[in-house]
């Protein structure tokens, strides 16, 4: 299983490569990728340095161009594809049919992976992208159970990458417009969810309130730890009760099921977090590297080392980690 790690900037890229990533993924400094945050990502010069650094050490470089261009922005996406090809990256991670069509025509030798933003949850959807654009790998949305992941792998014409660790989207990626409903900016159109530009913290006499474009996402009592107001992770009222109506702030951690993922034929494990610090990337990459190596050596005897789990817990969002949809015994 290939270990694919996030590179939000050059120091993070180096941290990933130095700690054993087989591949790193990055984006350019604009809305052509789904982590379009201030101060993040690569300009041409930095990308060149990063690619050289990774290639010199035997790691592959993927570039995410995985948002959906509208007519007025089309040229920017086209330029991003051309730029990635010129830079000699190993893989483009793409989601939009138009962008794939362009890349396939202009750069027929460039390897394409279907982004998680492409929302492909079945082998038939993957087959569409494979037949139409020759994609070589698909990243699955974080909504499938183990059994469903296995079904996809068994029938898929291309290899499958799954998320192994990091923040958890509870909605199908590529099909969540909650952020633009509230702020006008969504992962699909702008490359960001619940953007910081629209976040406001308000101190009241008894509580701390987080708002997104004026909408109250959560309210924290004095002794409660406050989290970033990602809008699906707030507390809301439904049927007279106030609770995490959509998603609790937890992180995905697949360490306990690595042997199972390997047995099913998962080709790559992806770590989420291009927005996280180089220290986070170093730590998570180091643990995942050790775990995957141990799993490869002796899949049957594999148990996650307590020290690994402890180390991952220190960097998780919220207080707990889960297997997400993967643990579901049912459909």
């Amino acid at each position: 299983m290939e270990l694919v790690c996030p590179a939000g900037n050059l120091p993070a890229l180096k941290a990933a490569v130095d700690n054993g990533a087989d591949a790193v993924y990055m984006g350019f400094r604009d809305d052509t990728n789904a982590r379009h945050f201030a101060g993040l990502n690569f300009n041409h010069n930095k990308a060149e340095l990063g690619i050289d650094y990774a290639h010199d050490r035997g790691a592959r470089v993927f570039v995410a161009i995985n948002t959906f261009p509208q007519p007025s922005g089309w040229k920017r996406w086209q330029a991003a594809v051309d730029s990635a090809a010129d830079l000699g990256v190993d893989v483009l991670i793409v989601a939009d049919i138009g962008v794939m069509d362009y890349a396939r025509e202009r750069w027929p030798d460039l390897t394409l992976h279907l982004s998680v933003q492409g929302s492909a949850t079945t082998h038939e959807a993957i087959r569409f992208y494979s037949e139409a654009f020759g994609i070589r790998r698909a990243v699955l949305p974080r909504v499938l159970s183990m059994k469903q992941v296995e079904q996809v792998i068994n029938e898929s014409p291309v290899e499958i990458e799954v998320f192994g660790f990091g923040s958890l989207c509870v909605m199908v990626e590529g099909r969540c417009l909650l952020s633009s409903y509230v702020t006008g900016r969504s992962p699909n159109t702008f490359g960001a969810c619940s953007p910081g530009s629209h976040v406001r913290w308000e101190e009241t006499p008894t509580a701390l309130e987080s708002r997104l474009n004026g909408v109250l996402i959560d309210r924290y009592e004095r002794d409660e730890p406050a989290g970033y107001p990602t809008l699906c992770k707030g507390r809301f009222q439904v049927g007279g009760h106030t609770f995490y109506a959509l998603e609790e702030p937890t992180s995905l951690n697949t360490l306990p099921i690595l042997p199972e993922l390997k047995r099913m034929g998962v080709a790559a494990i992806k770590v989420e977090g291009r927005q996280r610090s180089p220290a986070y990337v170093a730590k998570v990459t180091r643990v995942l590297r050790a775990a995957i190596d141990a799993c490869n050596l002796d899949p049957d005897g594999f148990t996650p080392d307590a020290a690994w789990l402890k180390e991952l817990e220190t960097v998780s969002e919220g207080v707990q980690t889960t297997l997400g949809a993967l643990h579901r015994p049912w459909q």
């Binding site: 959906f68 138009g98 069509d101 929302s119 038939e124 959807a125 569409f128 099909r175 159109t189």
Partner: peptide, 29 residues
């Protein structure tokens, strides 16, 4: 969903709002 587009190959179809058509090139394809 694109799985349906795949299974409808060679037939006429309507693309619903979740098929994510945002630009000319996708529309043409």
């Amino acid at each position: 969903d694109l799985a349906a587009v795949q299974l409808l190959k060679g037939k006429s179809f309507v693309a619903g709002p979740a098929t994510n058509i945002y630009n000319q090139r996708t529309l043409s394809f």
